[in-house]
Design a protein around this nucleic acid. Structure first.
Lengths: 221, 221
DNA sequence: TCAAAAGTGTTTATCGTACACCCATGC
DNA sequence: GCATGGGTGTACGATAAACACTTTTGA
């Protein structure tokens, strides 16, 4: 509105990627090399280019820094505290991503390390990423209850127990098996594939898939 | 992350302010004078200063452009389509505000007009403000159902019918009076003031106030 | 005395919750 | 044959929904 005065605010994107791995909710972090945050961990992120949307930035950076692609992504919130970056004024349009635990992580020489961390045991984080983590977890729990988003945390085919475990781990509750199945099947979100998962020392489980692998609002829990 | 390349993205804020007025949900718009949007309407907004948060920007601009202050405000979403502003790359951290219908609007010579518009009959809007309006309305409906946010749309003291009308108008439904009262009173969100609103040609209504005039999450409808 | 909105309970249907045993497989 | 997780139905309590008349005031 006042084109005469020059603004010096950098626009960046940071992405919180979740997966369920080893019966824990985990987030992907990269370990930083550059000062002043050397050794600290952070969510993958970086600057927005002039000719890309923040969503495009998030997708590009995830691929560059972690090798992850083809992932559920949505905008989380914009973080804009004035001193959130020690070096300059940076506002971050944080995004929120979910993926099934079947990805291969790429390591980049730009970072000391890239790995999944259980959200209950996160290391010290750079910038305001602790706050971002908290908001992302809140969003995830809420999404899980009011949408079919669980599809993005599971492979194409999964068992009802897999699905139930996702809910129990993330919402940090236990659910009665019969009631869970009754409810999920009544919602008509998933369909049996007609195959069973065998090879284990127990009765083989029926495989299901989600009818639609895209966000739909449904009251689930 | 790459401090060498210069970014030229402007960061702005736009605020959607709602009120309930004349039995309609209304949003506040300003009519623009400047090209290339002359005559079009838009939500109040402007650039973020280097040393202010987007929330501070929103508060400052609302006061400057409309005279409105002391208002419920939350971040809505960041809008970042590359061509959302014809003149330059501007990303807008949109915010969402609610106020009771008792404000006096100030007119500014920077704009042709400032007024409340029923959301069902919005005029042609500048930028991507039509999209912003849609998201804001969705957010409002959702907030009304899962939080006590209605306090921010009502004066300090109100009747149960006033409150019910807010719900009916915004959610575009009708509600049974007895069931509505039973539910609201059971939630323990409001308390009777001990006064009645008289002066009308009917039985005077008991006045209530919200226990807490701040956001609380409660399943209401 | 009439019009207009305030205020008030009960019954019924629906949904959510609690709960325990048999089944199919690999070792 | 035994250990392991898979799969299934019913009864009860709680909550939500439907529904109509009396009260108080101003004109």
């Amino acid at each position: 509105m006042s084109p005469s005065t020059k603004q010096s605010i950098v626009v960046a994107v940071d992405t919180v990627i979740f997966t369920v791995k080893d019966d824990q909710l985990c987030a992907l972090l990269i370990q930083m090399k550059k000062k002043p945050y050397t050794g600290l961990w952070a969510f993958p992120g970086g600057r927005v280019e002039d000719a890309e949307t923040t969503e495009q930035t998030a997708i590009r950076i995830l691929k560059e820094q972690t090798g992850v692609s083809n992932i559920y992504l949505e905008q989380l919130k914009t973080f804009d505290a004035i001193d959130r970056d020690q070096l300059e004024r940076v506002i971050s349009v944080a995004s929120f991503a979910l993926i099934s635990d079947t990805v291969q992580l790429k390591t980049s020489d730009k970072y000391a390390d890239v790995k999944w961390w259980p959200v209950k045991k996160l290391p010290e984080l750079a910038y305001d990423h602790k706050i971002i983590a908290k908001e992302a977890i809140t969003r995830l729990k809420s999404r899980l209850q009011y949408t079919n988003i669980a599809w993005s945390l599971l492979p194409d085919e999964f068992t009802l127990t897999d699905l139930q475990r996702v809910y129990e781990i993330i919402l940090d509750t236990t659910v009665d098996k019969r009631n869970f199945r009754k409810r999920i099947l009544a919602l008509d979100l998933i369909v049996p594939v007609g195959k069973k998962r065998g090879g284990e020392a127990n009765r083989p489980a029926e495989l299901y898939k989600f009818k639609h692998r895209k966000l739909e609002y449904v009251e689930i829990m």
